[in-house]
Amino acid sequence: MNLHAIRAIYVKEMMRFFRTLAQSFISPVLSTSLYFVVFGTAIGSRIQEVDGVSYGAFIVPGLIMLSVMTQAISNASFAIFFPKFTGTIYEVLTAPVNFLEIVVGYAGAAATKALFIGVVILFTAAFFVELQIQHPLAMIAFLVLTCTSFSLFGFIIGIWAKNFEQLQLIPLLIVTPLVFLGGSFYSISMLPPVWQTISMFNPVVYLVSGFRWSFYGLSDVPVGISLVAIAGFTTLCIAVVYWIFRTGWRIRD
């Protein structure tokens, strides 16, 4: 195992993050505050409690998931796309590193950044609503697994993308709608029966549901199924990344 290489990639990526720390820090705090002002206070005051939890507190896990997923994808996809774009990918391809070391470096840094933002949002939310975390270990597990799996997913998008337009295509057209329709701002049980059935095909539902369960003990689907779903998604992403490096798809001639 080339630990120096993992560290080199990880440190380089984190330094990029720290170079724009104000932007990385202020942006999630500001958008979370706006969500609470709009949804929590203006609209939330007109919405009844959801299973005994105030609407403002109910949306916190969904808000964290929303930011964590989009940040993990965005950071990881850009991290591997940019070297392809500038041509500096050559030094990773010629270095004595295997696919695992490259992925741990890039996706690990993206997951760390997403985790950082998730924690920032959690603390920001604590200023607006009264939070309770019934299952802290499960919360950490869901958060870490989501950061990891969506960083891997972002890594795959970054390798697939041939230009900046493609880089934004999947996050904007697929991920964001899935997250918004995945129960971030509502309980699936609020939907008409037909939409409840359709929602079960949205993988994000399982993640938000499991994560919300770790806060309030409330879930749209059994927490075991949520864990299997996130573990299955992570495994699928690892398998795809392994295949990419084995075949050299879009990175090696």
């Binding site: 080339n2 120096h4 290489a5």
Partner: peptide, 10 residues
């Protein structure tokens, strides 16, 4: 420094 690290050097 990045390149040195990639090649497994401390």
């Amino acid at each position: 420094s990045l390149t040195r690290g990639l090649y497994g050097r401390g």
